[in-house]
Design a protein around this nucleic acid. Structure first.
Length: 566
RNA sequence: CGGGGCAUGGCGCAGUGGUAGCGCGCUUGUCUGGGGGGCAAGAGGUCGCGAGUUCAAGCCUCGCUGCUCCGACCA
């Protein structure tokens, strides 16, 4: 393409609302124009990059024996009611009505219609396994869009669904998909790690996330030297010795207008670890008290799993005052009334003589012990730096990462509800086992840039670079240079090389800097040396060289072939 | 949902009550031509919206909206 005809308006300066490198380079590299929070116009260069990523994903899905479909974006309420997701998906799902007041959701993922396909076309075990996928834009009413395209309200997802005769076959396919995913990300030059994860809103029996390690990542993973890795959300925490000897020692102390943990610790001059925080949650309508050491964090994912509830949030001020005898800021487990249960984190049970709220404004209890109240024990704290590997016992290292893919064993979670059966060899109808597998395309693109850039801009890997070569006429006004550059450009097109011809009447420096910003792997620079019959080949990374004008196309072809660029 | 910050030309920003500015970009001309040029002349803004205070508001007050960051642990 000719730069002069292409909408590729690079920026010199980074827009002020960029908070990470990839976002900044995507804005400067004229990939995106923000319209609103989490909504962007995708400019040509980003579209081209996404097409490259789609190609690699499609090649991978081919290897997994998956067939590309396109499912409806609008999903009927009745179909989501059948799977139960109209209720369980919550506020993240966009909902709308048609002119006849019929209700729909904008598909957040598409299990229901994948099941519909399996139900329609799988007659017997001979048709299994079946794997289908699509690459489609998804819409989610994100709680807080952030990181540019990393967490947006509209994004491309490759979502695949597989159906199986039995659990064993699902397991085999799940392992294959993990391998295919890792291959896909390797082809995209991404360093990734597969980690054990929580199933979240999708449900099912097990899942793994494919994470790209990145400083600005929005997930936290624990990694072990032995190769084990897990999402920090799922890492279990060890229990200490449960202490139950002491009781009745507690006494009320006056702590005027100090309600947060840090205020109380300052006031009493005690470390946070001497306190037990009592958090009041509302779980499916009931108030639950959760105890955790003052300096720890509650892992709501674990808590939700333990409670088996669908809605979990911190109790409102009104709910606490209406249903319990406690006061927000001064809640404690002793003499606490109106809560369905008290759940103590395992670590709390190894504590003695700690400080808690006294369920009365401006008062705390000190010398509280576990026998002073009734509790259920559970591992509900967020893994901290002391966490160890569950495989080998070594200390875990925590890293930030971006979740690019997530693969689930859904089991019969959907197929049971939607009655997705096949006829087995014994002529009996049996329920299929199901898996689903997602990849977020924009965050994959962002992660590629995050992992491949330098101070000048992007350094795109050949596998995804929209243009492999940028032909630059240094002085466009010089007819000899321009004509020679144009000739090389046309020759490369004939060889099916993706090439940009920077034919703009701009200074050489502008063109060089844009080329580097855009991360184009090779520049062919046509300048003064054309008089000597030479042009310059300059890789984005590496040494430049002067070559005969007549050889440059041949040389580029050879180099690209060596590097598997074509 | 809570808390903070921001809102001035396409982008980045300055402007503490008295004529709306700077850099980049853009247009025209010209000189230039190998890492974001020089000179000259231009275009472009109801200062997010709405009230209010004042002789006078981009600036002060109140309300709203949008964006953004933090936290979603505050108990």
């Amino acid at each position: 393409m000719r730069y002069s005809k292409l909408l590729l308006p690079t920026l010199r300066e980074t827009p002020s609302d960029c908070d990470n490198v990839s976002q900044s380079l995507m804005m400067r590299g004229a990939m995106l124009k923000k319209v609103a929070g989490g909504l962007f116009v995708y400019l040509p260069y980003f579209n081209m990059l996404l097409e490259k990523i789609k190609k690699v994903i499609r090649d991978g899905m081919d290897k997994a024996g998956s067939s590309e479909c396109k499912f409806p974006i609008l999903v009927l309420k009745e179909d989501l009611d059948a799977s139960g997701r109209w209720e369980t998906f919550g506020k993240e799902m966009f909902r709308l009505k048609d002119r006849n007041d019929r209700e729909y959701a904008i598909s957040p993922t598409n299990e229901e219609y994948a099941c519909f396909v399996a139900k329609t076309y799988v007659k017997s075990y001979n048709d299994l396994p079946l794997s289908v996928y699509q690459i489609q834009q998804k819409h989610r009413d994100e709680i807080r869009p952030r990181g540019g395209v990393m967490r947006a309200r509209e994004f491309y997802m490759k979502d695949a669904y597989s159906f199986h005769r039995d659990e064993k076959d699902l397991d085999i396919y799940f392992d294959l998909m993990r391998k295919v995913y890792i291959d896909i990300f390797r082809s995209l030059s991404l360093e990734v790690v597969a980690v054990g994860a929580d199933n979240g809103a999708m449900g099912g029996s097990g899942s793994e996330e494919i994470m790209a390690v990145c400083e600005t990542g929005d997930s936290l993973i624990g990694v072990c030297e032995c190769g084990f890795a897990a999402n920090a959300e799922t890492i279990s925490c060890s229990a200490g010795e449960e202490k139950t000897e002491k009781s009745g020692l507690y006494e009320k102390i006056y702590t005027p207008s100090v309600s947060t943990i840090s205020e109380v610790t300052d006031f009493l001059k005690m470390p946070q670890s001497a306190f037990v925080k009592t958090m009041l949650y509302e779980a499916d309508g009931d108030i639950i008290a959760v105890l955790i050491r003052g300096d720890r964090e509650i892992n709501e994912t674990k808590l939700k799993k333990y409670l088996g509830c669908s809605a979990l949030e911190l109790a409102s001020f009104e709910a606490v005052s209406k249903k319990t005898n406690s006061v927000i800021g001064f809640a404690g487990p002793v003499n606490l009334k109106g809560v369905k249960k008290i759940i103590a984190d395992l670590e709390v049970l190894s504590m003695e003589n700690y400080i808690t709220g006294a369920n009365e404004k401006d008062y705390h209890f000190k010398n509280v012990n576990n026998s002073d109240f009734k509790y259920e024990k559970a591992d509900i704290r967020f893994a901290d730096e002391s966490a160890v590997c569950e495989k080998c016992g070594r200390k875990l290292v925590f890293k930030r990462a971006n979740e690019l893919g997530h693969i689930f064993k859904l089991g019969k979670r959907y197929t049971d509800k939607l009655d997705i059966t096949y006829i087995d060899s014994d002529s009996k109808a049996k329920t299929m086992f199901m898996g689903c597998y997602g990849i977020g395309l924009e965050r994959t693109a962002a992660s590629i840039i995050e992992q491949h850039h330098d101070e000048k801009g992007m350094v795109l890997p050949l596998s995804v670079a929209p243009f492999k070569v940028n032909v630059i006429a240094v002085d466009t006004a010089n007819e000899k240079q321009y004509k020679a550059a144009e000739k090389i450009y046309n020759q490369l097109i004939k060889k099916n090389i993706e090439v940009l011809f920077d034919d703009r009447d701009a200074r050489a420096g502008v063109k060089f800097n844009d080329s580097d910003l855009l991360g184009i792997p090779f520049k062919i620079i046509v300048g003064k040396n054309i008089e000597k019959g030479e042009v310059e080949i300059q890789p984005r990374k590496g040494e430049k060289s002067f070559v005969k004008t007549t050889d440059c196309v041949k040389l580029i072809l050879k180099t690209l072939k060596e590097k598997n660029g074509i």
